[in-house]
Design a protein around this nucleic acid. Sequence first.
DNA 1: CGGTATCCAACACGATACTG
DNA 2: CAGTATCGTGTTGGATACCG
Lengths: 115, 115
Amino acid sequence: MKTYYCGLEVTLDVIGGKWKALVLYYLIKGPKRTSELKRLIPTITQKMLIQTLRELEMSGLILRKMYNQVPPKVEYSTTELGQSLESILEALCNWGGIYAESSFAQDEFEILHMD
Amino acid sequence: MKTYYCGLEVTLDVIGGKWKALVLYYLIKGPKRTSELKRLIPTITQKMLIQTLRELEMSGLILRKMYNQVPPKVEYSTTELGQSLESILEALCNWGGIYAESSFAQDEFEILHMD
DNA sequence: CGGTATCCAACACGATACTG
DNA sequence: CAGTATCGTGTTGGATACCG
């Protein structure tokens, strides 16, 4: 049993770290294959991607569906619990855009959109 | 110049990590002295608290006001930029509470409120 | 009280090679 | 295509002692 003093600590435990929020953010927009996620997040390594997916799965935020075929195909999607973070992650994403354009951070941050 | 592919990456750079969101969360509720923050976040070490405060200050999210008196007194408060995260951090906190009570996590997480 | 300086351990993360 | 295994490193974070 883990003990926390604030709900925020729980959230950070579940989607904190370098990659979890980002991977979940893309999966919330729709189911994706492993290679699609890798393409959307070019700077993540294969190892960290798989590891992050496993942790999100363990936490009950995403589902892994495997198709028995050659070549293999795996698709990840969100659970209801994972999807419930949609508006929050969207807000965090927007805030980052605003921050990058703020007088404080401009000329320091650059965002390349690739939708 | 740092390059990102999504606003969320920027946000994680600014308030990601183990403590920044938590410290900011408490400061958003009102200005606090160093010792007050230490009391609110019992598991943080002195070193990490100071380090986190410095980083938030560098990012333009909080202000540090020092009173020249003995014993010394320092008070931290949010800037407009920092305060703009209020609703988001509140939502993240609430989500943690809901997650901890979910059928998935119950008996695993415990939250002790200390307001 | 608020903060700094060391030193050290843990682990998150990355690079690479390999498998079914 | 999806994933595992191994190894190495660099940051993160904690313990402790000390200072104005």
